[in-house]
């Protein structure tokens, strides 16, 4: 793999390969010495045009556990916020000898533009671009599901037949898109549940069922996994739905809906959560919730991705 830009083009074997490497990385996390010398002498740049302390920290920990040098280059307070172009930033990072660039950007496609630009030769990891994709989030979600479902026998397995319900702002969610493509590749079945204003135009052509009524969907599908998407503050004022109260009542995973789930269903959320809006506190803190595991698994997945992109001979992969 040269870059990780989306899950849509990820082949099944490559995806499972990454999940398996993440299993190895996760075992390292349980050792006394949590660090591997693998990427010694490599430089990873976290290029964040959008604030995200969680994702940036997760990549930073992952890179450091592999002994890479990490440079955090965030837009706020840097030349980037003063109008420096992506091109100039990329060329600057190239001149500093970056081997990998982890990029978070509000513009969809910015990581792909960077990867195919020729401005920089580094491996590019998409850490979330606009409303396009967030591939490492989808990988860590798939990893989390695979572990909960297959336990110690997870290695080499896919998610064949697993039913995943993704609830909320699908329209603006890069997490939903990346999850959809990856889950389809791994054999899972996806149902989106959202108010019609938050379902993307043309989503009927996607490999997912689309439902509006959460209670009916939960009762009929009885999903293995319920994943709640975060409602962004700015959507609340943009007339996609009348009020947050109405949203929580119709599409929030409240206590009642939690109790109605199968006892072995798992509850996921990419974080940060709006407790009381898309998910109740009881649901977030229940034994069925994987919210904390997702964070821990994020480090393992990102180690696996950085390892796959940066450890080998770059020439041999192009």
């Amino acid at each position: 793999m040269r870059h990780l830009l989306s899950t849509r083009d990820l082949l099944r074997d490559d995806a499972i390969g990454l999940l398996d490497i993440a299993e190895d990385m996760s075992e390292v996390q349980n050792r006394e010495v949590k660090k591997l010398p693998t990427l010694r002498g490599k430089t990873v740049v976290n290029l964040f045009f959008e604030d995200s302390t969680r994702t940036r920290t997760s990549f930073e920990v992952a890179a450091k556990r592999l002994s890479a040098d990490v440079i955090n280059f965030s837009a706020k307070g840097s030349s980037v916020s003063k109008g420096e172009s992506l091109k100039d930033t990329a060329q600057t990072l190239a001149a500093m000898g970056a081997d990998g660039v982890v990029i978070r950007h509000s513009a969809s496609g910015a990581p792909q533009v960077l990867a195919q630009s020729g401005w920089i030769d580094a491996g590019v990891v998409n850490a979330g671009d606009g409303t396009h994709e967030h591939p490492t989030q989808a990988l860590l979600d798939a990893f989390t599901m695979r572990r909960r479902i297959h336990g110690d026998a997870a290695r080499g397995r896919d998610l064949d037949g697993v039913s995943v319900m993704i609830v909320g702002d699908v329209l603006h969610s890069r997490v939903a898109r990346s999850n959809l493509w990856l889950l389809e590749t791994l054999g899972a079945h996806v149902t989106f549940v959202a108010p019609a204003t938050l379902v993307p135009v043309g989503a009927s052509t996607w490999p997912a069922d689309i439902r509006y009524d959460l209670d009916a969907a939960l009762a009929e599908v009885r999903p293995d996994v319920v994943m709640l998407l975060r409602i962004q503050q700015e959507r609340m004022n943009a007339a996609f739905f009348p009020t947050t109260r109405e949203y929580a009542r119709q599409w929030g995973l409240d206590d009642e809906r939690l109790l109605a789930l199968r006892p072995d269903s798992i509850v996921m959320h990419p974080g940060p959560m709006n407790r009381g809006l898309e998910i109740s506190s009881r649901a977030a803190d229940s034994a069925q919730s994987t919210v904390i595991e997702q964070v821990a698994n994020g480090v393992s997945i990102r180690m696996a991705v950085l390892y796959s992109l940066l450890s080998g001979d770059r020439e041999a992969r192009s």
Partner: peptide, 12 residues
């Protein structure tokens, strides 16, 4: 590592 294509690690 840098002289070969990426190797898949194996089980420890």
């Amino acid at each position: 590592l840098a002289h070969h294509p990426t190797r898949a690690p194996q089980r420890t």
